[in-house]
């Protein structure tokens, strides 16, 4: 997949007056493979909605989202599963882990779908993010910050051309944010993948990104 294009996308639930100043709603935005797009917006302005529209989880919007030349509203659930296996990955704001599975199992469930990394990569990444001792612990017993790191590693286990990040560092301190960001950059570079990063404010340690305000 080479590009994602948003054409005049507006959520059904937002009034027209609220999107006048937006650089995304009702505009055409193209995100090319290898590009870093940083979407900045305050809480409640629709960052998560936009990420979900792009990932195909919600369809309550007007306009169109295109994967290359395909309007994703026309994609079947089965076709979406193929895209999600090896074209597009996501780190959810609400993390979405299997709480009764161990940390390692949570990551493996994603890795086995289309293994980009060997199983050993889980331990290596966990070490980088400081959660290697938690691998055999149930996810529900981990702190929210640890769970965020689990979700990050899980998203990096598959091949992808686009990585969607929805406030992925909200519960991480600066040091862990930097470690996580470095890992994400490294993995995106390996794949020459695009990164769509949605957060409350522009982060100073992001590099080469295009910032747009929602």
């Amino acid at each position: 997949m080479m590009r994602i294009e948003l054409r005049n996308v507006t959520p059904d639930y937002i009034e027209k007056e609220k999107w006048d100043a937006s650089q995304i709603w009702e505009k055409t935005i193209t995100i090319n493979k290898g590009e870093h797009l940083h979407i900045v917006a305050p809480s409640g302005s629709g960052k998560t909605s936009l990420i979900h529209f792009i990932y195909g989880l919600r369809k309550d919007y007007s306009g169109s989202v295109y994967y290359d030349n395909t309007d994703i509203k026309n994609l079947s659930v089965e076709s979406f599963s193929v895209f999600r296996q090896n074209k597009i990955s996501i780190i959810f704001q609400d993390l979405r882990l299997f709480e009764n599975q161990t940390v390692k199992e949570n990551i493996e469930i994603k890795r086995i779908l289309d293994p980009y990394h060997k199983p050993e990569a889980i331990t290596e990444m966990a070490k980088k993010l400081g959660i290697e001792k938690k691998l055999n612990q149930l996810a529900k017993k981990c702190s929210y910050g640890e769970q965020q790191r689990i979700a990050i590693i899980r998203a990096l286990m598959q091949p992808f051309d686009f990585l969607l990040l929805d406030e992925p560092y909200s519960h991480l301190d600066d040091e862990n944010r930097k470690k996580a960001m470095e890992l994400i950059y490294e993995e995106c570079e390996k794949r020459n993948a695009a990164m769509v990063f949605a957060d409350l404010k522009a982060l100073d340690f992001l590099k080469d990104e295009r910032i747009v305000y929602l």
């Binding site: 989880l57 659930v77 089965e78 599963s81 193929v82 999600r84 296996q85 994603k110 779908l113 289309d114």
Partner: peptide
């Protein structure tokens, strides 16, 4: 919930 998450992660419904 688990099934929905598996589908969200990319597991094929078929």
């Amino acid at each position: 919930d688990n099934l929905r998450l598996l589908l969200t992660l990319g597991y094929s419904p078929d």
